[in-house]
Nucleic acid binder design. Structure first.
Lengths: 390, 390
DNA sequence: CACGTTTGTTAGTAAAGCTTACGAACAAAC
DNA sequence: GTTTGTTCGTAAGCTTTACTAACAAACGTG
């Protein structure tokens, strides 16, 4: 804490409301505006420089100048004149050169195999690759990641914008995997090592945090939560349009929060009634398998299990949804488990346990990107990091 | 949704990772740097222009230029030469003119009376005023606010930087009180009406959201939650250093989240086991009064009640703390109720219901500003809004 | 007392976006 | 076929901003 000259009186101790955020130079402003133009072009599609000027608020002159730079860099191309001309000089359409770059997305969240894909700037998946994890951990697992990236690089047909990785565990803002028990990683500088090895821009994030970026792209909401249900249970959060990482970089780690006040199954962590103990895929399938198909109420028994799981999820989410006034929650995981009874029970529970007025505004839906949420999110992370406003 | 030229392939639909945030002009950069200088001066105290240059990274020339402007506006003053001179030309100390401006803070959260204060730039409370609310609602309550502001203005001894108001209910970013049932307000343009009436800058926010600003000033954490326990229960959140308002401007409204899975007292809202039904001050005092002092186990019975309340609070906070990876939670309300058993039970419950590793990093403490959190937070809001980076 | 150091200012430069002005190319109206 | 009005993209010049370079003033130190 810093001293204050005229001591004595109570003070606003180092008020963070006034929070130094670093100086801003003209070049920063320039790069911001450059990104603004690129973003507008990327999201709104091909258009003229004059359209961009109207869209961004910058003058036609400035837009022309910025666009010239982008064309020189090969990020933007002229597409020729607009098809259905209006009065006046015909517009020259320009667009992000979506065929010029590709992105590699890597998903390390699956327990059995690493997934990867080459994705183009449309978001289309150009090629895929997978590597079985086997029992590999530590350096061996790291080598598998390198291998996967190398294979994918071999299948690219254009220059690469960068590599994005969604990893389980806690990932710090520099792409160091602080801790990922399943992979036997602690303090692995994944970003630095891949960047070094492949001489490419690399971005690394937690799998759920990365996944929510992909969902953010397809929704109008700027506050959303994605719950990723697999071998474990994790969440990714966007609040006010910004990803939340957390002070200890462990935001979204809700798997070991205890649900309810009536006990529950014992969890691997030692506690009873953790969310993960209720909801993790192995746990659910084990319960469902135990029922079998033989006896006559099998169907309704299965539904009871899924409904109870959904209720438990709703119980944990209710305080978060209320505290953040979330407008959308997305579920990611095996559709055959999550859709239907589980989803329904979660919605009902959320409604019943939060203020009615706010509950009405809440959407709970399945991910729109199925198995590829993390892959796509990783690509969005690269897109944002390499082309976006910082 | 906007069309994408080369249809067919799946796309990153209007990716928000690339999110237009508006153009940046040179003057915006200038005002950012101006605020940066002011912030550094405010938080670090009196220093020379050269010190500021080193502190901000701007050149001495630029700092001198910015400071000249601030002096011309009367925000900054020269204090003469530094006392213990080092080699070289003696430095001229400058500082924010903390005696030149005062701020009015208003707290409308109390059920019985509106509180207000004149606060100087040290954060010292210069004078106070209160008005009993009686049964006033709607326009009558609004008139009381005006009255309170008028009285406080009369007691100022310097020009005013502005007026900050912490109001119960839902407050939108333009200072419109969307809904405040206790005051009979809905869609009351409080900010606009006060600004019009007094020709001063006015900032209005939800009471708990405002209170957390005050606590943010006295902590090193950039992720914190303040729980305000009074007639109702509400929360204010700061995530990643930024206040969270919520998509529907109702962030922090956790009073009517249902706690646990074992029922609970009936709440005014109709549900059973809402946080407010467990924890609101009237509820707690009623329970404590029911015990009386006569029978011999009175002390331990009181403690049981408070411990149970604390446990309920912990149950609701656990998912929020885990999801946001919060490092600090602050309690605000009657110290005689919250300190001790209740506080202890909340901590224990939070530890027991979240991951041990993360629980260790968590601090749970009482507010350091006692009754004045909202008043001071309102002042911080003005400080930030009028002098800070936007 | 000469010397080095530090402060704050002056002078000039580079970058960025603005306004103003203009030629080119077209549609619509006559 | 000509005129008119509109739109596009570019060129020139201006203003703002922060930078570098240089310097005078004022102070300790050897």
């Amino acid at each position: 804490m810093l001293t204050v000259p005229f001591g004595g009186a109570p003070i606003f101790t180092r008020s963070r409301a006034l929070r130094p955020t670093g100086k801003v130079l003209p070049e920063h402003a320039r790069s911001h505006n450059r990104s603004l133009v690129l973003q507008t072009l990327y999201t709104s599609g091909a258009q003229s420089r004059a359209d961009l000027s109207r869209g961004t608020g910058l003058t036609r002159v400035t837009v022309s100048d910025l666009v010239a730079g982008l064309i020189a860099e090969g990020l933007v191309v002229e597409l020729g004149q607009r098809e259905h001309p209006r009065p006046g000089k015909p517009a020259t359409l320009i667009d992000v050169d979506r065929a010029a770059f590709q992105i590699i997305g890597i998903d390390l969240s699956d327990h059995e195999r690493f997934h990867g894909a080459v994705i183009d700037l449309h978001g289309a998946i150009v090629s895929r690759a997978e590597l079985a994890l086997g029992a590999a951990t530590g350096e061996a697992a790291l080598a598998l990641v390198s291998d996967l990236v190398r294979r994918l690089i071999a299948s690219t047909t254009t220059p690469l914008l960068g590599v994005g990785v969604g990893s389980p565990g806690v990932v710090d803002p520099h792409g160091v995997v602080t801790s990922a028990p399943n992979l036997g990683w602690s303090d692995v500088a994944l970003q630095a090592r891949l960047a070094e090895e492949f001489s490419l821009p690399v971005h690394v994030g937690n799998d759920a945090n990365v996944a929510v970026l992909a969902e953010h792209g397809v929704t109008r909401h700027d506050d959303l939560l994605l719950v990723k249900i697999g071998h474990g249970v994790g969440a990714g959060l966007i609040v006010g349009g910004r990803p939340v990482i957390g002070g200890g970089f462990a935001a979204g780690e809700i798997g070991h929060v205890v649900v309810g006040t009536d006990g529950g199954p014992r969890c691997a962590c030692g506690k009873h009634g953790c969310l993960e103990a209720w909801l993790a895929v192995p746990r659910l399938t084990a319960q469902l398998d135990a029922i079998g198909d033989d006896h006559r109420d099998a169907g309704s028994a299965r539904e009871d299990i899924l409904r109870e799981a959904g209720r438990r999820l709703g119980i944990v989410l209710a305080p978060v949804v209320a505290a953040l006034n979330l407008s959308e929650v997305v579920l990611s995981g095996p559709a055959e488990l999550l859709e239907g009874a589980l989803h329904g029970a979660t919605v009902d529970t959320l409604r019943a346990r939060t203020m009615a007025a706010h509950g009405r505004d809440l959407t709970l839906r399945m991910t729109e990107q199925a198995e590829d949420v993390v892959l796509r999110g990783a690509a969005v992370m690269v897109l944002s990091g390499e082309l976006g406003v910082s």
